[in-house]
Amino acid sequence: MPIITMREAISQALWEEMERDERVFILGEEVGVWGGTYAVTRGFYDHFGPERVRDTPIAEGTIVGAANGAAMAGLRPIAEMMTINFAFLAMDQIVNQAAKIHSMFGGQMTIPVVIRAVGGGGRQLGATHSHTPDVIFAHFPGLKVVSPGTPYDAKGLLKAAIRGDDPVLFIENATLYQAKGEVPIEDYIVPIGVSNIQRAGKDVTIVTYSKMLQVSLQAAELLAKEGIEAEVVDLRSLRPLDMQPVIRSFKKTNRAVIAEEGWRSYGIGAEVAVRVYEAALDYVDAPIRRVAQKEVPLPYNRHLEQLALPQVQDVVEAVKGVL
């Protein structure tokens, strides 16, 4: 099986879906002539042309809004937010239009739109450009929120998002673009809303996704050297949230750590922990611990920024805290 980067996996998914379905097109800032600010759509403009790879003005609300309208009319747009921080300017179109229109009109209209957004901190971009606000979007029924942690999942989940009839926010972590993994040549999808055991273990359950999946896998390797076998569950999708693999794992290990890159308050850790307590209180051997970003606007200085972001060692220590 070929080993490719996350960037290549996402690019392949887009390319293959555009080849497969004429209704699929891309719109966003610098997606065309520039080739994508993260080079995900490099070569697309020349191959598919300006009608299907549409450079837009800098107007996020209207990028997503036009994508929503085109989706209502039967196309399958992929709207790119250059970074998820700019998606705040499109908040109304994402959570109040895309997420509501199917239900609000009694099922008459569908919004088969995919909104790709790049998020995450750790690149010294300062507070406004470094958000990991995934959980905010996951609050809204009607929207699906997906964030892959491996190239395999990125390609399969993106294809599922494009082929599905619901609006999907597809969140990519910029620091993962160079992450490598095996991706088959043949066509496949990864269904949205299915959590996945990424590493088997018996001593503790680490629940995570996206960038923190890679961080957690590294922590698990360090722990293994000390004889601690962590089971790592990748949520992959925040809405719908598939808790079954988490609960199954927890009933086996009786201990859990939840690792996310965003802030702790009102976060995924809180949601997952409560769901574990609700479903498996009798299996709890230690209070669940959360690993998350320090509660500050992310600073520019490299050392301060890394101090604020959750690290491998934070996961290791949290695991030891529940053992």
Binding site: G65, A66, N68, G69, A70, M72, G74, L75
Partner: peptide, 10 residues
């Protein structure tokens, strides 16, 4: 209004 732009785009 953006929705209308999208309908027209389609």
């Amino acid at each position: 209004l953006p929705l209308a732009a999208g309908l027209a785009l389609a």
